[in-house]
Write a protein that binds this DNA or RNA. Structure first.
Lengths: 195, 195
DNA sequence: ACCTGAACACCGTTCAAGT
DNA sequence: ACCTGAACACCGTTCAAGT
């Protein structure tokens, strides 16, 4: 950071990074101009030199997250030729490690006018990767879209459930079973029971 | 509500119902003691006669929701003998109508110490209904648990995505396809591509 | 160009006092 | 038994003034 007379001179990016740290820890609601100012060693008033208001620094923080934690990761995945391997790599990357707190915080407020466009961009990008996996497996565009939808809702729901400790302890141990189900042939089990 | 000298006398239930209305509209964060007091025509101070603090009225509101909107609906479902029909009824009930706002608001903060126990109770109850569908279809307890997990994460993720208008417009039109996938036989499509 | 400091509004919480 | 009203703290936002 730049300084003047031994004092910090802040940029919008400094504020956005501090806000992203708060979002990751405690969600967007926990972002407080007063607290950010305290952490950065300035008064609240100076915040409004850089941003129009509280919402704007949240947007800036989420765009930071979008660039660094999402868009940056996809090219490596897309390089995997075998679609099943690609699906496995994708799901393992999101299933095994601890939940991405910013991801959850974002999903939780995905209808917020501030958050909605960023959420839609990220979702569409990821869904396209999933659709390609299934068309690469030989499914039609429509069938692939259905499978991609199921896979992505699985991903989102899984994260939701993982947040809650009591529920998370019951999640399936073996991700491979989920991959089997997501790539299963269409005909039903127990077809004879169908109406 | 009871009255005295023409003035309203409020019970904890009156406050909880007002809070639930707010949660349904705008989520738990929007619950404000001052606003509730305004709606009910009393001052903020009187709130603290009924509740220890803001969190307590949110818990009371969510327990109201749990009783009226969740527990009450399950017995009718469990009465459907054919497991596929039961799954279809269950998914249609949650897929077709507009998103339950309280449901989403709850899921969004399912790790909140205030919300976690209620969320865990509701989730476990619903997951048990799903597991039974799959054991009724002839699957082992373990296999049924995996399918139930996939079905429930589908449900949660679907609601998440539905919140965002841009994404919701891309959801699969025919729920029946999702039911096919959830009840599909285990062997993979395109088995030859597997490593 | 960036920050301070005072002001105002909103709201959670407490508590003595009222009926 | 339930409510009022004043007080205090926290924080978003504005803005004139400082460097």
């Amino acid at each position: 950071m730049a300084t003047r007379n031994g004092k910090l001179l802040l940029s919008p990016d400094d504020w956005a990074r501090a806000a992203l740290a708060t979002i990751t820890d405690s969600g967007p609601d926990a972002v407080s101009v007063e607290r950010l100012a305290g952490e950065l060693g300035v008064t609240r008033g100076s915040f409004y030199w850089h941003f129009g208001g509280r919402d704007d620094v949240i947007v800036a923080a989420l765009e930071l997250w979008e660039r660094e934690s999402t868009t940056a990761q996809l090219p490596a995945l897309e390089a995997i030729a075998d679609p099943i391997k690609r699906l496995r790599a994708l799901l393992r990357a999101v299933y095994e490690p601890a939940v991405d707190a910013a991801e959850l915080a974002l999903a939780a407020v995905s209808d917020d006018p501030v958050v909605a466009p960023i959420f839609a961009r990220v979702t569409e990008r990821r869904m396209a990767v999933l659709r390609k996996i299934f068309t690469d497996l030989g499914l039609s565009a429509k069938e692939a879209a259905d499978r991609a939808w199921l896979a992505y809702t699985f991903y989102l729901g899984h994260h939701q459930l993982r947040k809650n400790a009591a529920i998370a302890s019951r999640r399936p141990e073996h991700l491979e079973r989920m991959i089997d189900l997501l790539t299963a042939a269409a005909p039903r089990i127990a077809e004879q029971v169908t109406p």
